Amino acid sequence: MAKKTTVSLEGAVKTDAGVTYKGVVLEPVVEKCEGCERIIPFEGENFCPTYAQPSRKWAHGVCNFATHVRAEVDKTGAVKVNPLKASKRAARGR
């Protein structure tokens, strides 16, 4: 079983843009992040130490760091195959 580590924002400085931690500006988490185990509260706001811009991780679907969301199966139940790989397999006769 993996060892669970605790992350703290010790040494972070709050600015107008967000929180500066180790030279990186962390933005506050978005509503979709609520419930994630990675969230760390800092001075009344919640931040994600894993990704600096949580809104960008949710822009194209589910955040891959989210601990509270499970991957969904396609409605048809079919597995999505890379078209390039599919054409190569067809050419080999598989």
Results as ranks from 00 to 15, higher is better:
Pro49Cys: 05
Phe65Gln: 01
Thr50Arg: 03
Glu43Ile: 09
Asn46Glu: 14
Ala71Phe: 07
Leu84Tyr: 09
Thr50Leu: 14
Ala66Arg: 01
His68Lys: 10
Glu10Trp: 07
Val13Pro: 02
Val69Leu: 08
Glu37Cys: 04
Arg89Gln: 05
Lys57Glu: 13
His60Gly: 11
Ala91Ile: 10
Ala12Thr: 11
Arg94Glu: 13
Tyr21Gly: 10
Glu10His: 01
Arg92Trp: 03
Trp58Arg: 12
Phe65Val: 00
Lys88Thr: 02
Asn64Glu: 15
Ile40Pro: 01
Cys33Gln: 07
Leu84Trp: 07
Thr20Glu: 11
Ala52Cys: 10
Ala12Arg: 02
Asn82Ile: 05
Tyr21Arg: 04
Ala71Asp: 07
Glu34Gln: 08
Lys85Thr: 08
Leu9Asn: 15
Pro28Ala: 00
Glu27Ile: 03
Glu27Gly: 05
Pro28Ser: 07
Val81Ala: 06
Val30Thr: 11
Thr20Gly: 00
Pro28Met: 09
Lys88Asn: 04
Cys63His: 00
Lys32Gly: 06
Val73Lys: 15
Val7Tyr: 11
Ser87Thr: 06
Cys63Gln: 01
Glu72Asp: 12
Thr67Trp: 10
Ala59Asn: 02
Lys4Asp: 12
Gly18Cys: 02
Phe42Leu: 14
Ala78Glu: 13
Gly61Gln: 02
Gln53Met: 09
Ser55Trp: 06
Arg94Asn: 08
Cys36Val: 08
Arg70Ser: 08
Val69His: 04
Ser55Gln: 07
Ser55Phe: 06
Ala59Glu: 03
Arg70Cys: 09
Leu26Val: 03
Cys63Trp: 00
Val79Gln: 12
Phe42Asp: 03
Asp16Trp: 05
His68Ile: 05
Gly35Val: 08
Val30Tyr: 01
Arg38Asp: 05
Lys14Asn: 07
Asn82His: 12
Ala78Pro: 02
Glu45Gln: 14
Val69Pro: 03
Ala12His: 10
Gly11Pro: 03
Asn82Cys: 12
Glu43Cys: 03
Thr5Tyr: 11
Gly11Leu: 09
Arg38Thr: 12
Gly61Met: 10
Gly23Ser: 13
Ala2Asn: 13
Arg92Pro: 00
Ala59Lys: 14
Lys80Pro: 01
Asp16Thr: 09
Ala12Asn: 12
Lys22Gly: 09
Arg89Gly: 01
Phe47Cys: 00
Val81Trp: 05
Arg89Trp: 06
Ile39Gly: 04
